[in-house]
Structure formats: C-alpha cells, structure tokens
Simulated assay, not measured.
Amino acid sequence: MRCAYVESQDADRPLDGLRVGDLPDPGAPLPGWVPVTVRAAALNQHDLFSLRGVGLPAERLPMILGTDAAGVLDDGTEVIVHAVIPSPGWHGEETLDPRRTLLSELHPGTLAERVWVPAGNVVPKDPAVTWAEAAALPTAYLTAYRMLFDAAALRPGGTVLVQGAGGGVATAAVVLGRAAGLRVWVTSRSEAKRARALDIGAHAAFPTGARLPEQVDAVVETVGAATWAHSLRALRPGGTVAVAGATSGAMPPAELNRIFFRSLRVVGTTMGTRDQLAAVQRMLLATGARPVLDGVLPLAEVGEALRRLEAGEVFGKVVVEVTA
C-alpha cells in the first residue's frame, strides 16, 4: 500500500525521517472498523510534530502520517474521515476522552491508499464539495468552527481577532467567521499574508501586536507565546480567548491579574466532534464558503509540501491526491 510514513524522528531535521513508499495494509485493528479508499488527504502541523517525535513514541514506527482525508467506502459511499478516535469503551463526547488519539498517533493515518477508521468516524460527503475541499475540513476547519461557535460562542455581528493569518486554522476562522456574519480582524508579521487574508474575507488586517481600533469580543489563538499578551489586551471586558495551539511556544506569562480583573475567559479546545464536522460541511453548503487551498499535489511530492509548511510558506491548506 503506497503511503507517506515516519521511518525515524529528529526534532531538528524532521523531514529526514519521512518516507514515501509501500507498507502492508494494516487491516482493521478492532471490530467495527471500516476501510476508506483515500482520494485526498490534507497536511497539518501535526505531521511535522510526528516527524519530530512529539506525541508519537518511537516504538510505534513506522507510522503512516495524516489525520485528514476524504474517500470512498467499499460500498461506494463518499465520505469525510473524522480523525478523533475515542478509546475502547468510552461513552460521551470524543474530544473529552482523556485517552483519545488522532489518526497517525496510535493507528495508521490518512496519507495512504487506504485508512481504517471506526464506522462512526465517517461523515457522508456532499457531491457539491470537491475531494480536496472535503479533505481540508477534519482538522483546521473543524477546529476553527468549534473555536468560533462553541468555545467563544460568537454570534453574527460579533468581532473576532484571528492571530497569525495564513495558518490552516487561522484561514479557516476567517472563512467561517465571515460566512457567519462576524466582523473578522487578523494579524500577521507578513504584509503579503495580511493582504491575502483581506482577499479571503477578513475585514481588516494588522501587523502582529498592533494597537487595534477597538477591543474585540473574542480572539482565535493558535500562535501562543508570541501573541498571547496581545490577545489578552485586545479583548473587551468579559471577552473570550479560544486557544487551540501554541506554535510559537506554550509558556508565555499568564497575566492572571488582567484575566480576573477584566473577567476574561480562556477556553481551551481541541479538534471537534463528528457531529460538528458534519455541521461544518452543512455550513459550507448553506453559505457557499469553501476552504482556502494553497495547492493540490500528488503523494510523491509530500516532502516538498511539508518543507513549505515547516518554513511557513503555506497560506491555507495543502492537499495531497492519493488515489484517482
């Protein structure tokens, strides 16, 4: 089975351990799992974390990369794969299971000709959504949807600041926020990325750390240390910072005095539920919004795509076509 996988790990040179080649089809790890023939899979920072050895123990190598995919069940049903795998016997929301994993952490991932998932982890794909668009949804767009409408509880007319324009979750937050009737502001160190953010629907774009015209209802925070102080300063009293990542470092000063004195809410969130993934697709169909794609390329070129992702050269999602 053709796939992209982690052969070895290196924190400083993660791409040295990437291989594109053949591994055996692992088959169903547990009863009730089904195979999906992968048509398209999207790349994420999670893939680079795995190559660095973050969240993936070396004893599980070789491990097929990838959390996001769209493909076809054996009966011909077109589906989107939900990547959050609850532990056996867990009942309740899958994101709250302390033993949950994502595809490519414990079980082989989606950058392969076939991936096995629990039967409940697939969402029917609407024909109006392309394979590449569908593959972009399960991590970035699901995470952004949950941050905006669950963690931050934003409603039409609210103002949201999205830190770090250009990343997968950030671009998803711009697209979904604009489609939902939010006023969307973004920040970036890059003038080019600020301009691109305006092109895809942001109402205003500012340099990282800039003083804003007014305070906002919520902040979408995935950058971490580099933007944390600005995120807290940007919030109106009673506002919410929704946190789903810390790509620049996870240990900034907490600024607890500001948080309690201004009654700010800090809400952590990871991925989302299968039902929320279905809701994201419904939102796209109802509004006409679509994921921002940086490019679509064959599996053989996944190394170059991950290099660009590591270098911060990507705007939106990179999608890999796996099977025709």
Rank of each mutant, 00 (worst) to 15 (best):
R290E: 06
L65E: 03
W33L: 00
V169G: 02
V223C: 08
A197I: 01
G53R: 01
Y145M: 03
L51R: 04
Q45Y: 15
L43Y: 00
G201E: 00
S231F: 02
A225P: 10
V6H: 00
A128S: 12
L297T: 14
R274Y: 08
G209D: 08
A40E: 11
A210Q: 08
L23I: 02
L15I: 10
V129K: 04
A279Q: 11
E59G: 03
A173D: 05
D74T: 09
V320H: 01
A58S: 14
Y5G: 05
V115T: 09
P252H: 11
G120V: 03
L73N: 10
V318N: 11
H107P: 00
V20T: 04
T37M: 13
M251N: 15
A286K: 13
L232D: 03
E321L: 12
V38C: 09
E133S: 06
G76Q: 10
L142F: 12
E113W: 01
V129E: 03
K125E: 04
P62C: 08
G316R: 07
D150V: 15
E304G: 14
D199F: 08
G27Q: 07
V266N: 07
E304R: 15
G120A: 10
T287M: 07
A254H: 13
D97V: 08
E94L: 05
V115S: 05
R236F: 05
Q276K: 06
P237F: 05
P213W: 13
F206A: 06
T323I: 07
E310W: 05
T270R: 14
V20E: 01
A132W: 09
A305L: 06
A197F: 05
A226C: 10
T95I: 15
G295R: 07
V122I: 13
W33T: 00
A136E: 07
K193Y: 05
R60D: 00
A192I: 04
A278F: 07
I259L: 10
Q215R: 15
A165H: 06
A324Q: 14
A136R: 09
N44Q: 12
V79W: 08
V266C: 09
L111P: 04
E7S: 14
T143N: 05
L284R: 05
T323M: 01
L277G: 00
E255H: 15
D275R: 13
G55F: 02
I80G: 03
R290T: 12
T208I: 11
L56P: 00
Y145S: 08
A83R: 15
M283K: 15
G120R: 04
D126G: 08
H82W: 14
A4L: 02
G53S: 06
E113M: 03
L297R: 15
V267R: 15
L142A: 01
A140D: 13
P88W: 01
T227Q: 11
L48M: 06
L15H: 10
A311I: 08
E255M: 14
W116P: 02
F315Y: 09
L235P: 06
G164A: 09
T139Q: 13
L212S: 02
M63N: 02
G120C: 03
K193W: 04
G316A: 00
L96V: 13
R265Y: 13
G71M: 09
W90R: 03
L23W: 03
L198I: 01
P124Q: 04
A195W: 02
G239P: 06
P138T: 04
V175W: 08
R196G: 02
